[in-house]
Nucleic acid binder design. Structure first.
Lengths: 211, 211
DNA sequence: ACCTGAACACCGTTCAAGT
DNA sequence: ACCTGAACACCGTTCAAGT
């Protein structure tokens, strides 16, 4: 039922919002421009004013996904205490939980981009989250819990490990207690390996003095 | 141009083979049953004899993807020597290389399944690869390079870490030297954390005797 | 500027009918 | 058993035309 007026103060924003809902509830394949237009009571050709094609809409969604994930990571840090491994766990957990709750959205964020310009834009969008991760690592280094060295390399290692958990959570391969255990085991062992001097419990005890 | 005869000794196999090619060259979105039928010179309704719907074809492809990946992992092990960290690296590298070369196929293998029966079937298909990984870990434990303990848990940790590298390689977020470095750093630090007693170079030197 | 409506070339899926 | 051909209900995309 068309209302008659052109209407829609901001069709672009409305399309994105509705698309995100469909994505969450029914997945990418169920996302159609025509269905979106119908839901917003607008002609099927109207979306093309705001998104060149379906892919452009998906790319825009990917961008919001990265931004939301960044926000979720910060919220996780804000909820956590000041301790060292605690902050790493809080940050990582926020990532994994977001991935499980917004699987399709994150999948879009990580999909291979055909357009180089889009790939660059998304790469840029990751920077704030990566900066947050750097800060967490620098904190661990100051506390003597992470070995000195190139923080970018250490950041890439942590990011990749957590991403491995997150993608499996998103795909449903890892759920419930199994997910929790892998998450804990992976981070614990990796941090142990990243510690400056690894005794038996380097994550909860200061390194024993050399004998 | 239809030939006239029903033809095609094994249309199902022909469909899968052609689909895999299209997937590799043009991605999932470009994969259409009608196009496949056209390429095989068969009516557009013929594929439905062998695959209930498009999703069923995609599920079948996912299955072959897991099998191919398993084969690639074994080939990696076969090429490697007998040393301990060497075998882990060889196995993991085969996984990552396969992911980079067959991104779309592996994506299908890890996509969330709507059908529980399919999810179970794919879960089963992973078992041979996971068994191979268990063997590599058991080897490391015998050599005193990996701490004793539940091999399933340790396997899940290693799998997840490597999967994190693989998905980023598949998505094009990690390529070239950056990929190699993250791969090396992650495995090195994780194995260090998994070692029974971690000195400064636990991966290349036997653990120093306790003082 | 922003949207409509018609048009075009594609889909997936189903089903009676052919061999 | 296996396939065809027509039919149906959907798509994405384009473009002249409207306000």
């Amino acid at each position: 039922m068309r209302t008659g007026r052109y209407h829609h103060g901001d069709l672009r924003a409305a399309l994105l919002e509705r698309a995100e809902q469909t994505l969450r509830e029914q997945g990418v394949d169920a996302l159609s421009l025509r269905e979106l237009a119908r839901a917003l009571d607008v002609s099927h050709a109207a979306p093309s004013r705001h998104f060149r094609d379906r892919r452009a809409l998906l790319d825009a969604l990917a961008l919001t996904g990265i931004q939301r994930l960044t926000t979720a990571g910060r919220a996780g840090l804000a909820r956590s205490g000041d301790g060292f491994p605690e902050r790493v766990f809080a940050f990582a957990r926020a990532y994994v939980d977001f991935a499980a709750a917004h699987a399709a959205l994150l999948e879009l964020a990580f999909a291979r981009k055909h357009d180089a310009a889009v790939a660059d834009e998304l790469e840029l969008a990751w920077q704030p989250l990566k900066a947050d991760l750097q800060a967490v690592i620098a904190h661990g280094q100051r506390e003597g819990r992470i070995r000195a060295g190139n923080a970018d390399r250490i950041g890439a290692v942590l990011f990749t490990a957590v991403h491995g958990v997150a993608t499996q959570a998103a795909g449903g391969q890892l759920t419930g207690p199994a997910l929790d255990q892998v998450f804990d085991d992976l981070l614990t062992h990796l941090l142990r390996g990243l510690a400056p001097s690894a005794g038996d419990e380097p994550l909860t005890e200061p390194a024993a003095p050399a004998c």
